[in-house]
């Protein structure tokens, strides 16, 4: 479903990713793990065009991803949930949900199922999104991407700074994406969550993918993160 081949990317003239390759199949959750600053977030941002691609290829399904315009990604079936600033804080909760629908010329009525699923969002529909709690902001960020039913989800550290109950909710959401047949590439620091959710894990070091394991492997975690 999602395939990266020899991807080099960075910001301006600074290269961060070197020769990155990975594959995420349909109905699969794949983790991208490594220390801070090794290029995990940059990998996701390069796919959606928020970091500069310098070389390499990206395939989504059978198609080569030739555009690097971030605003085309949603229509190409790629949903991205950023680590920080994942919503539009000055808009209301409902307006945040309307944005992807308006941009894709879909009916505002498509919000209905999302409100049924996330009752809290319906309760807070007229509330400014910037005033939501951390967990609610994440749920809103997921909901606005799920509205478009992407084939590929790119999720960047969704549980950072969240309460345990919110972490469990996010974990259930990510697991549900697999059930829907989507491909999920998950960047996450919470190894418990990685162990629980991921079918495969790519391990990154200094801008490169250096290992791939089926599920969580303690020895590899020790090698890349210094933890058992």
């Amino acid at each position: 479903m999602l395939e990266l081949e020899n991807l080099d990317a960075g910001y301006g003239k600074v290269q961060i990713l070197r020769d990155v390759g990975l594959h995420v199949g349909a109905g699969e959750i794949v983790g991208l793990v490594g220390r801070n600053g090794v290029g995990k977030s940059t990998t996701l941002r390069a796919i959606v065009g928020l970091a500069r691609r310098m070389a390499g290829r990206i395939r989504v399904g059978a198609r080569l991803l030739e555009t690097s315009d971030p605003s085309r990604m949603a229509s190409l079936g790629i949903g991205y949930v950023a680590q920080h600033q994942e919503i539009c804080p000055d808009l209301t909760v409902e307006e945040n949900l309307l944005v992807p629908l308006f941009a894709s010329r879909r009916s505002p009525r498509c919000i209905g199922p999302i409100y049924e699923r996330f009752g809290r969002l319906r309760e807070r529909a007229r509330q400014r999104a910037g005033s939501l709690s951390g967990g609610e902001r994440k749920v809103l960020a997921f909901a606005r991407i799920m509205l478009l039913e992407p084939d590929v989800y790119l999720i960047d550290e969704p549980t950072e700074g969240l309460m345990p109950s919110a972490v469990a909710e996010i974990a259930a959401l990510v697991a549900g994406m697999r059930e829907s047949g989507a491909a999920v590439l998950l960047v996450e620091q919470d190894l418990g969550l990685i162990r629980k959710l991921c079918d495969r894990i790519y391990w990154m070091n200094v801008g490169r993918v250096e290992a791939c394991t089926d599920g969580f492997d303690a020895a590899t975690a020790d090698r890349f993160l210094g933890v058992k």
């Binding site: 971030p70 949603a74 949903g79 994942e86 000055d90 307006e95 894709s104």
Partner: peptide, 24 residues
């Protein structure tokens, strides 16, 4: 519709773009 998309870009350009709003 355009007004909401304009305010979305003003509020958080990247979040609006990845939701499909053309900044250009």
């Amino acid at each position: 519709r355009y007004g909401v998309m304009i305010r979305a870009i003003a509020s958080n350009r990247e979040a609006a773009q990845v939701a499909g709003v053309s900044a250009r």
